[in-house]
Nucleic acid binder design. Structure first.
Lengths: 344, 344
DNA sequence: TTGTAGGCGTTATCAA
DNA sequence: TTGATAACGCCTACAA
């Protein structure tokens, strides 16, 4: 069983090439200073023996692993999957590897993972947090380790964690303005659960847009869904309809909720967008294929992952704590769920 | 800037506790063998100093990293995202870490990543391959490294890579049998692009089921989509309809294609499931919310990731090459897109 | 029960 | 231009 044999090391190469290990090391890391003839001979031996330098030994020597730890809530989730892709791409581009950990949506696992990653001596940690409010931040207590951390999701000034995030207030504003621009005045909002930070933020953006437009807020037009599934959107829309308040448009917290909400509207005999216009949020793959296709706010998720990673790596390289918070803007993807409301 | 200071090492602890490094090491790895009093004192110092043993040094010493490399095509993709989740969970449960790499759907990157991971001295590699046929397997040439690899996707006997996969032939059989059980006899198939192994396999399953049921194959009932997007399904279904062959049911390669196919059917004035029954494949989140909700074949993707990881880790631990190929079965998720066809 | 010595594979430093 | 030496942090083997 060939696996038991020890991998080729730098000494094997040195011996076979008749040079010292230092020369081999130089051929790998700084070939210019090695005499061309020597260099060539050594390189040939390296190829023949299929020598790959051990990152482990290098890391021990240099106390750098060129690895970042990525702690994520659940990377099968559309948001975190895309964030991870962005992070991995950016890390690779900069010569870093990514080590994965999923908290399985339990924030209390964060501490454990930070410790684990510290043990791995990762150069830094990217903490891709959920936007769900937690009674007590598991990282509030002084951390067991002193490693650069950049987080996504919550901004916690008391942690002095640097955070990169998406501007959900502006996203809510954007969606609402789009409906206002189409002449709507009675605009409802079907937002997410109250413990979702993003739900609160998007609601704030909605309120902001309305108040700027000089429209008085009607609390009857505000519903919170109880979860993130289409069914929750269905039920929330049912509730809105039961209130028998007049509205010609809705801003819905997410595409997933919108799918349920649309079903509820149809069941109530309301046509989309003729009777009710909808702007949703996320632009999941499916949003282009609902009936009608959803106009929706898209978040630059991959960019978020990439930017957070870039900031983290700069933090690692320079040792300078980055600006505490950086915000990324959403943009609108227009499709068929919004219709102009002719002035009456 | 506190980051520059060197992390606490075992010698710092030993000194502070007035013992040798070996005693500290034993407190960590084999506490039973240390005198209770000593143990307690050392443990206290460990806690005070927040000492975390360096995995890097351990790995150098033991030539084990307890890390597996995961090479994936694109882990924002539903399939690979779930596979990765399964892999990470299983790895963690067994005390392994996961290092991520994405080939961005370019199989030629595989070699590079294998080398990179070998440099990291990962204990093994999980190769989550795409099921797209490639003119030449980039790993066919002898690998530069001798590390346990388990793959998913293609089985390559010539590589002597062990492979874990999902039984797509049986999945196609399952879908078709379901339609047969509902009395359908004229069953079309809208399968994937010809270079997708899974598309070929599912077609084979379809043929198998029909032939077992004593139904003669009608090539006019077979269409290949040109891509994986809903639009490709739309166009493929248009083609099928244009052929003006009679059919009362379709087995569609994926939920994504089915979404487009349903649109095409509706446009042609065909009702689902009254005029045409559909069984699709994948059970993506959205499948429950189409109109009607899709009956679909679900693949045990997370289990696939977990099983492949388990096999890989066993390979690592025992050094024994696992059985070359292991197959996992799909199951049917019944919803509203299939209706019995009354015997005429 | 505890300690000493040595080496895992690499590279910075200094010397030749 | 090349080489000898030492050290990174840990743990196996052996000794006390």
């Amino acid at each position: 069983m060939s696996r038991t044999k020890r991998p080729i090391n730098i000494r094997d190469v040195a011996r076979a090439a008749g040079v010292s290990t230092m020369t081999v090391s130089r051929v790998i890391n700084n070939p210019a200073v090695v005499a061309p003839l020597t260099r060539e001979r050594v390189q040939q031996v390296i190829d023949e023996l299929k020598y790959t330098p051990s990152s482990v030994a290098r890391s021990l020597r240099s106390s750098r692993t060129y690895t970042i730890g990525l702690i994520t809530v659940d990377f099968a989730d559309h948001f975190f999957a895309n964030l991870s892709v962005g992070a991995e791409l950016e890390a690779r581009r900069r010569g870093f590897r990514v080590m994965l950990s999923s908290t399985e949506r339990n924030p209390n696992n964060e501490r454990e993972f930070v410790t684990l990653l510290a043990e791995q001596r990762v150069d830094g940690i990217l903490l891709a947090r959920d936007a769900i409010q937690v009674p007590r931040d598991p990282l509030t207590d002084p951390l067991p380790v002193d490693v650069p951390i950049v987080s996504t999701g919550f901004f916690r000034p008391e942690l002095a964690l640097c955070s990169v995030d998406i501007d959900n207030v502006d996203g809510g504003r954007l969606a609402t303005d789009h409906l206002l621009d189409h002449g709507h005045r009675r605009i409802a909002i079907l937002t997410g659960p109250v413990d979702h930070k993003a739900a609160v933020d998007r609601l704030e953006g909605y309120q902001l847009a309305l108040s700027r437009a000089g429209i008085k807020l009607d609390p009857h037009l505000i519903v919170h869904a109880h979860g993130r599934q289409p069914d929750d959107g269905y039920m929330a829309m049912n509730e809105l309809i039961q209130r028998e308040v007049n509205f010609s448009a809705v801003f819905v917290y997410s595409d997933a909720l919108a799918i349920g909400a649309m079903r509820s509207l149809r069941r109530a005999g309301l046509r989309i967008p003729d009777d009710v216009s909808i702007v949703a949020y996320d632009n999941i793959d499916f949003a282009a294929f609902t009936d009608p296709p959803l106009t929706t706010v898209q978040q630059p998720i991959q960019e978020l992952g990439a930017l957070a990673t870039r900031i983290l790596i700069e933090y690692i390289e320079t040792g300078e704590r980055p600006v505490p918070i950086t915000i990324l803007r959403c943009f609108l993807v227009e499709r068929g769920s919004v219709k102009s409301r002719p002035p009456e």
